[in-house]
């Protein structure tokens, strides 16, 4: 057996050994019990600053930097935005459609009225609806999960 074939065989073997179905990102998950996303969405203020573990299907991923994902809730039409510090965790785009567990703290983001209008406009454009600026009268508030660790079933 030549040196080249030994190297190639070792690389293939390493590929098989290191292949993993669960992709762990960031810090190791510490919580065993998950909180339903619907519970968080129902009373987000009561979860502010608390560390929670959420579970669900990844329904969207930041395509450029992998700096956020959306996790589907346990109830229809519900989801939660998961944000990470750029570069600390990079969510792979291949995670879309896969089941994930994410741990982090719930935080509140308050938008100005201008920002709220811009967001509403973008949403309307995406959904092909007509945007009526007059209907946006209050600044928006968003609750999201600031993640420190995640495990994705790849």
């Amino acid at each position: 057996m030549t040196l080249k074939s030994v190297i190639i065989a070792s690389l293939i073997l390493a590929g098989i050994l290191f292949a993993n179905d669960i992709k762990n990102l960031g810090e190791k998950l510490t919580l065993n019990e998950s909180t339903a996303i619907s519970e968080i969405n129902k009373a987000p203020e009561s979860f502010l600053g608390k560390t929670v573990l959420v579970e669900g299907r990844v329904i969207d991923v930041c395509k450029k930097r992998g700096c956020w994902v959306k996790i589907a809730g346990d109830k229809e039409y519900e989801s939660i935005l998961v944000k990470v510090e750029d570069g600390v965790i990079v969510f792979p785009v291949e995670a879309k459609g896969k089941m994930a567990k994410v741990e982090g703290t719930i935080e509140k983001v308050e938008y100005t009225l201008e920002q709220t209008k811009e967001r509403a406009k973008q949403k309307c454009e995406m959904e092909g609806k007509e945007f009526d600026e007059a209907k946006v009268t209050k600044p928006d508030v968003m609750y999201r999960l600031r993640a420190i660790g995640a495990a994705i079933e790849m």
């Binding site: 299907r57 329904i59 589907a72 229809e76 039409y77 989801s79 879309k96 459609g97 896969k98 089941m99 959904e127």
Partner: peptide
């Protein structure tokens, strides 16, 4: 499919 999700009454995502 790996899964699906209803994001709104009008929208369905299939993965």
């Amino acid at each position: 499919p790996n899964g699906w999700h209803r994001t709104s009454p009008q929208r369905l995502q299939i993965f």
